[in-house]
């Protein structure tokens, strides 16, 4: 506990390139390989037990983190005064370490993802499947992008300690190439995909607003009110009309029928409570699901 309370004494806080750090890294690496090997050789029942144990331990950590008293205004390098603070400090210090582990695992899994991508597209090219040329394009793009990115990183990291390459005037062919591929091509294509959503919204809305049932009629009516309320000119004409009507009839209740008031009522009285009710249900569902996974009760699902 006390060791973890001081950041400079933790495993990852050791002096870079020190022999102790290298010994610890090598030992951890070998141990990790051993655990992975043992895991692959373990029978399925034992594997499930291991998975359950890891899941339970991870869940327990975050539950403790949530329930345990949080010491406020903790200064760096301070030691805990008692056992409660000791656990709180330990939990606090362990969060970035666990995040590191998760990040490393994600990096490995990304490698598996890229393997999947390469396998699928290599097979498509080999079999000359339909539109296999797109697969060639994808492979070439992947290699080119990684190549430019990697060379750029090496140049910036090792050959440019003053950071001159950050300025466009000092760019070389690699930086221009990367800029062309990423900002010039990829980002533009992404923006184009995003822009297409506008047309998709239009076609989906057209289908949804066709009056075929009571539900679609309600949907169309509420959408119409909200859209009309956002049209400045129409809102002005409507509001002026209502104001004149109020002046003639001396009935301020009619103010409620201004288009902006009706739209506000639809949003605050109908839409917001409905969304909140749905979110309550979603939250409860997530709690129940998390609980089942944590306690290994999700039989027949992912954890079985």
């Amino acid at each position: 506990m006390e060791l973890l309370a001081q950041a400079r004494l933790t495993f990852f806080g050791m002096t870079p390139n020190s022999p102790e750090l290298w010994v610890k890294i090598i030992v951890t690496f070998i141990l990790g390989l051993g655990v992975m090997f043992a895991f692959t050789k373990a029978p399925i029942r034992a594997r499930r037990m291991i998975v359950f144990s890891f899941t339970f331990a991870s869940g327990l950590f975050y539950i403790l983190l949530w329930l345990w008293p949080v010491a406020v205004a903790r200064e760096p390098g301070t030691l805990p005064n008692n056992a409660v603070e000791g656990v709180a400090f330990w939990l606090d210090d362990a969060v970035p370490r666990i995040a590191d582990v998760a990040q490393i695992l994600t990096a490995f899994l990304l490698g598996l993802g890229i393997m999947s991508l390469l396998t699928v597209h290599t097979q498509r090219i080999r079999r000359k499947a339909q539109d296999w040329k797109y697969s060639v394009l994808l492979m070439v793009s992947l290699v080119t992008m990684v190549g430019f990115g990697y060379v750029d990183w090496i140049q910036k990291k090792f050959q440019d300690p003053q950071g001159k390459l950050l300025e466009m005037a000092n760019w070389g062919p690699v930086q221009y190439g990367q800029d062309l591929l990423f900002d010039g091509a990829y980002q533009q294509m992404e923006a184009a995909m995003f822009s297409m959503i506008a047309f998709f919204i239009l076609s989906a809305a057209y289908r949804a607003f066709r009056v075929r049932s009571v539900e679609s009629t309600v949907l169309m009516a509420s959408a119409l009110i909200l859209m009309l309320s956002l049209m400045g000119a129409l809102d002005f004409i409507w509001t002026t009309g209502i104001n004149n009507l109020v002046a003639q009839t001396h009935n301020p209740f009619l103010d409620n029928f201004k288009i902006s008031e009706v739209a506000g009522w639809v949003k605050s009285t109908l839409q917001t409570p409905s969304i909140r009710a749905i979110e309550f249900g979603v939250g409860l569902g997530a709690v129940a699901m998390g609980l089942r996974i944590w306690l290994g009760l999700e039989r027949g699902g992912v954890s079985a």
Binding site: A277, I278, E279, G281, V282, L284, G285, A286, A288, M289, L291, R292, L297, E298, R299, G300, G301
Partner: peptide, 24 residues
Amino acid sequence: GDEYYAASAYLTREPVLVGSLIGQ
């Protein structure tokens, strides 16, 4: 909403999952 989380209970009808739904 929570129909999404009810799916596995609905499809498998396992007592554990349905019980969890009642708890929800």
